[in-house]
Each structure stands twice: as C-alpha cells, then as structure tokens.
Deep mutational scan, measured.
Amino acid sequence: MSGIALSRLAQERKAWRKDHPFGFVAVPTKNPDGTMNLMNWECAIPGKKGTPWEGGLFKLRMLFKDDYPSSPPKCKFEPPLFHPNVYPSGTVCLSILEEDKDWRPAITIKQILLGIQELLNEPNIQDPAQAEAYTIYCQNRVEYEKRVRAQAKKFAPS
C-alpha cells in the first residue's frame, strides 16, 4: 500500500471527524483483525431537504486505489439507486470521479460526498449510466419523482 495514499486518507479521516456536513457519514471499514482499512470507507449521503430525495439516507462505498490521490476513489451505492447517473452496479457516474475528466488530487472526501448529493437531485442527462431511470427522467418527470420519493422512504434511517 502506498504511504502517500494512507497518509492522505488519515488526514481526510481526521478532517472529517473534526468537521463534516450534518447527516453525512464517512467511516473507514475494519479489517478482520480489527485494524482500520483506510482504503475502503462506508459512507452515507442524506437526501437534500426540499427535494424528492429528502428523508432518505443512501449508503455508498468509497474504494481507494494505491495511487490515490492521483486517481479518484470508486464510489458505489449499496444497494444501487434508481438514478440516471448511477450504473446498474451502483457505481456513480460523475465527472469529478473520473481521472480523465474533472478529478483533481486536491478534491476531498467531503467535496465528493457533497457533489454526489447535488447530483442526486440534478442528474447530468449528457452522461446517462442507467437506461430506465434516464428514460423516465426525460419522458415523465412526475413518475420519476414518485419513484425517487418511494426510494427515499425505503432508505429512511430507522
């Protein structure tokens, strides 16, 4: 494992614990031996107030490669969400998460999670990743928002 990646992720964890947006979660997972795995984080993004996503808490896994922060983490909703920019596998399609697009090593975990929260309610229809959600979003916004509200209710924190 890269010392650069681990040191950056340790800084990220410290900064997150000191200050993070209300309702968001970002925690490194534990290895079988109980030690912390900084390369694999369990996160959760709350649906934004005043949107059909409100009330939901959407679980996301963030996986970092050894060359982080040169390369972005892979962000994957578990379980996958109904959304035009979420692949059926759950992987998020967002330009700041793509090395050859808008990724920059200075982007923080907090910025990534806030960017994904923004994307939930403002899909990028130029870059669809899920045919069904994309089609319904474009053709029947009322039905799309109904499905999103049902999903938010399903993923409401207990």
Results as ranks from 00 to 15, higher is better:
Met1Cys: 08
Ser2Thr: 11
Ile4Ala: 12
Ile4Arg: 09
Leu6Asp: 07
Leu6Gln: 11
Ser7Tyr: 07
Arg8Phe: 09
Arg8Lys: 00
Ala10Ser: 10
Ala10Lys: 15
Ala10Cys: 01
Gln11Pro: 11
Lys14Ser: 04
Ala15Thr: 13
Ala15Gln: 14
Ala15Leu: 12
Lys18Thr: 07
Asp19Lys: 06
Pro21Trp: 04
Gly23Phe: 03
Val25Cys: 10
Val25Arg: 13
Val27Pro: 08
Pro28Glu: 02
Thr29Tyr: 15
Lys30Ile: 10
Lys30Asp: 06
Lys30Ala: 09
Lys30Cys: 04
Lys30His: 09
Pro32Tyr: 13
Pro32Met: 14
Asp33Glu: 07
Asp33Trp: 07
Gly34Met: 08
Thr35Phe: 00
Met36Ala: 03
Asn37Arg: 13
Leu38Lys: 00
Leu38His: 01
Met39Leu: 10
Met39Asn: 10
Met39Ala: 07
Met39Gly: 09
Asn40Leu: 13
Trp41His: 10
Trp41Arg: 00
Cys43Ser: 10
Cys43Trp: 06
Ala44Tyr: 15
Ala44Thr: 09
Ile45Met: 13
Ile45Cys: 14
Ile45Val: 15
Lys49Phe: 13
Gly50Ile: 05
Pro52Tyr: 11
Trp53Arg: 03
Trp53Ile: 02
Gly55Asp: 14
Gly55Tyr: 15
Gly55Trp: 09
Phe58Met: 06
Leu60Ala: 12
Arg61Ala: 10
Arg61His: 10
Arg61Cys: 11
Met62Phe: 14
Met62Thr: 08
Leu63Gln: 14
Asp66Ala: 11
Asp67Ser: 13
Asp67Trp: 06
Asp67Ala: 12
Tyr68Thr: 06
Tyr68Asn: 01
Pro69Thr: 00
Pro69Asp: 03
Pro72Gly: 08
Pro72Cys: 11
Pro72Glu: 09
Lys74Ser: 15
Cys75Trp: 05
Cys75Arg: 04
Cys75Ala: 10
Phe77Glu: 03
Glu78Cys: 07
Pro79Asn: 15
Pro80His: 12
Phe82Asp: 02
His83Gln: 03
Pro84Thr: 10
Pro84Arg: 02
Asn85His: 01
Val86Ser: 10
Val86Tyr: 05
Val86Leu: 04
Ser89Val: 07
Ser89Leu: 09
Ser89Phe: 12
Thr91Ser: 15
Val92Ile: 07
Val92Pro: 08
Cys93His: 04
Leu94Lys: 00
Leu94Asn: 04
Ser95Leu: 04
Ser95Tyr: 06
Ile96His: 06
Ile96Lys: 04
Glu99Tyr: 14
Asp102Asn: 08
Pro105Cys: 12
Ala106Val: 12
Ile107Val: 14
Ile107Tyr: 06
Thr108Met: 14
Gln111Ile: 14
Ile112Trp: 03
Leu113Phe: 06
Leu114Ser: 12
Leu114Asn: 12
Gly115Ser: 01
Gly115Arg: 00
Ile116Phe: 07
Leu119Tyr: 14
Leu119Pro: 01
Leu119Gln: 02
Glu122Val: 13
Asn124Val: 03
Ile125Ala: 07
Asp127Ala: 05
Pro128Ser: 13
Ala129Trp: 00
Gln130Pro: 00
Ala131Cys: 13
Ala131Pro: 10
Tyr134Pro: 05
Thr135Ser: 11
Ile136Lys: 07
Tyr137Val: 00
Cys138Arg: 12
Cys138Leu: 07
Gln139Phe: 07
Gln139Leu: 11
Glu143Thr: 07
Glu143Lys: 10
Tyr144Pro: 04
Lys146Ile: 11
Lys146Trp: 03
Val148His: 01
Arg149Ala: 06
Arg149Val: 09
Ala150His: 11
Gln151Asn: 07
Ala152Lys: 02
Ala152Met: 04
Ala152His: 02
Lys154Gly: 03
Phe155Trp: 01
Phe155Ser: 10
Ala156Arg: 13
Ala156Ile: 08
Pro157Gly: 10
Pro157Phe: 12
Ser158Leu: 12
